[in-house]
């Protein structure tokens, strides 16, 4: 159990002949809550997929829950980026959550078999945990983006994973819900000793909850305690352009001068 949840050493990931991430080293301890930040196209989702073993490493070493990537996925809860269901989707949230529990099992589930009740109880429990019980039996396409997101978090949680990979779970939430979900993830992280890697765009709604922040930009990544990483010096070095971090009086951090898509701008206007 003392093995880290995620350990990357000098990892390089290539897509379409281009190195998206190069020489990235990263460690996530058990029960640690890590935020992954960075501009669009920086490679955050790529990093998550590599941890899942969905993308191969071109170089470097990786261990996930003590195994090579892809081999421990049964113990990982995954929430991919930007999934929403249009109103024509006639599936209930509760069935989607249930899929997280036994969706990869072959054979016909026979009602009344031992374990069936247990599974239904677990699904109800996790729906309660994320506060989605009220609308879990409605067709998911008829729910709001935030309600869908809560159900998807429940799906990722339902198997009691040891590692949660959440790719922009706060995406379609209002500020209050963002804080609520971040608090929820923090609670799960502590109660069930789950390591969490959460990709986000804005650090502020989650700043009070996280242990470590990983900034991804310009093909590499820098990780550490938030107050150490989110500084003018570190970010300036990472992005390669002057960046200023301001501390607002309410404790929020304001990152100024962060280019949205560094590669494309740089090439064209150089």
């Amino acid at each position: 159990m003392s093995e880290p949840a995620v350990a990357l050493e000098g990892a390089t990931i290539r897509l379409g002949g281009r190195a998206i991430l190069e020489d990235v080293s990263l460690g996530v301890a058990r029960g640690e809550f890590v935020a992954v930040l960075g501009p669009n196209g920086a490679g955050k989702s790529t990093l998550v997929k590599a941890i899942l073993g969905l993308l191969p490493l071109a170089a470097g070493k990786a261990k996930v829950l003590g195994r090579p990537p892809g081999e421990a996925n049964a113990r990982i809860g995954y929430l991919p980026q930007r999934r929403n269901f249009d109103s024509a989707t006639r599936i209930r949230g509760i069935d989607l959550v249930r899929l997280g529990l036994d969706g990869s099992r072959w054979g016909i589930p026979i009602p009344g078999l031992p374990g069936t009740k247990e599974k239904a109880r677990r699904v109800a429990e996790v729906l309660e945990l994320v506060g989605a019980s009220r609308y879990a039996t409605k067709p998911i396409g008829e729910l709001s983006g935030g309600e869908q997101q809560r159900l998807l978090i429940a799906q990722a949680l339902v198997r009691r994973p040891q590692l949660l990979l959440l790719d922009e779970p706060l995406d379609s939430l209002d500020l209050a819900s963002q804080a609520a979900v971040a608090a929820l993830v923090r609670r799960i992280c502590e109660q069930e000793h789950v390591a969490v890697l959460l990709v986000a765009h804005d650090v502020n709604p989650i700043l009070g909850f996280i242990d470590q922040v990983v900034y991804v930009a310009g093909g590499s990544a820098v990780g550490g305690r938030p107050r150490d990483v989110i500084t003018s010096e570190t970010l300036t070095r990472l992005f390669g352009v002057p960046i200023e971090v301001l501390h607002a009086s309410d404790g929020r951090l304001v990152v100024v001068g962060q280019p949205e898509a560094p590669f494309h701008h740089g090439d064209r206007h150089a």
Partner: peptide, 19 residues
């Protein structure tokens, strides 16, 4: 039926779960 249902409605997560 179950993996097929999973793959049909939620292919990314299904793939990650080994379907």
């Amino acid at each position: 039926a179950r993996p097929l249902f999973f793959a049909s409605v939620d292919s990314d997560v299904a793939r990650a779960s080994g379907v």
